[in-house]
């Protein structure tokens, strides 16, 4: 089952896909553009992975190599970073390289601590698509990636759907694609994660209790390019969803 959370006509609603767009729980059928899409579930702790696809690592630095033997590069994001499907993300004027990152979002469904990789999938409630923007001009080498790069308001798009784990027989065999203004710019497959979902859950739950609603952003493959004001960025994951985001400038924010 796929579910979304949307705002429509003055209230929040749960919704499901419909051939004409979506169907609210109360029976109303609407077009995609008639509602405001919110992150599709109550998001708890947002846990993000860096450098979790070998090809992306190579893209960022020719000298860097990362293997499954290395400790995962993990960072957290706050709730203000989130934005829903068809949302807008601001590109500050002083930035020369802002890029999308298409990532499989893994949603925890069961509380757990010290979960073995072999048991990890039983703790997964489902999946969603994430687009975790980075603003590389702000990179500093202290607790990198620092929050100014990775925790900006509305710079982590999530949605449109939350997809039940039961409907995704193999989350490690999903094609990822990003399109900028309709042109394919990023391609990969979740099969190429350095640390797979089970390994990540085992690693994280060794020091922190994972709880329902916690969201793990599992990293992005290579193919990240600079996006400009006005660009439409579509991040898409096979069987999970197609997440649309538009880049906007400072003007709308009075900056």
């Amino acid at each position: 089952m796929k579910t979304a959370r949307v705002a429509y006509a003055g209230a929040l609603h749960d919704a499901q896909p419909h051939e004409r767009g979506l169907r609210l729980a109360d029976g109303r059928v609407l077009a995609e553009q008639d509602v405001v899409w919110l992150p599709p579930f109550e998001v708890g702790t947002i846990i993000a992975l860096g450098l979790n696809y070998a090809d992306h690592v190579k893209e960022l630095s020719k000298e860097l190599t990362v293997t499954a033997k290395d400790e995962p590069l993990v960072f957290f994001k706050g709730p203000g970073a989130l934005v829903g499907h068809r949302g807008m993300t601001r590109r500050p004027k002083d930035v020369s390289f802002m890029h999308y990152e298409c990532e499989l979002g893994v949603v925890i469904g069961r509380t757990g601590r010290r979960i073995a990789a072999a048991d990890a999938m039983a703790h997964v409630a489902g999946y969603t698509v994430c687009n975790d923007y980075a603003f590389r001009d702000y990179l500093e080498n202290w607790y990198r990636p620092n929050l100014r790069v990775k925790n900006r308001d509305c710079a982590t798009a999530v949605g449109p759907w939350f997809v039940d784990a039961a409907d995704v027989p193999d989350p490690h065999a999903l094609a990822l694609r990003t399109f900028v203004n309709g042109e394919l710019t990023q391609q990969g497959n979740t099969a190429n994660m350095v640390h797979d979902i089970g390994a990540l859950i085992e690693y994280l739950s060794d020091f922190m209790t994972l709880q329902p609603g916690d969201l793990i952003l599992t990293g992005t493959p290579d193919g990240v390019i600079d996006v400009k004001v006005g660009d439409e960025v579509v991040t898409e994951i096979e069987s999970i969803g197609r997440l649309v985001n538009t880049i906007v400038g400072d003007e709308a924010f009075g900056r």
């Binding site: 708890g44 702790t45 957290f76 080498n141 925790n151 922190m208 209790t209 709880q211």
Partner: peptide
Amino acid sequence: APPRAPVLYLKPRN
């Protein structure tokens, strides 16, 4: 180089 912007981290709900 020394940090320019504040160096922040999160203490998540757990």
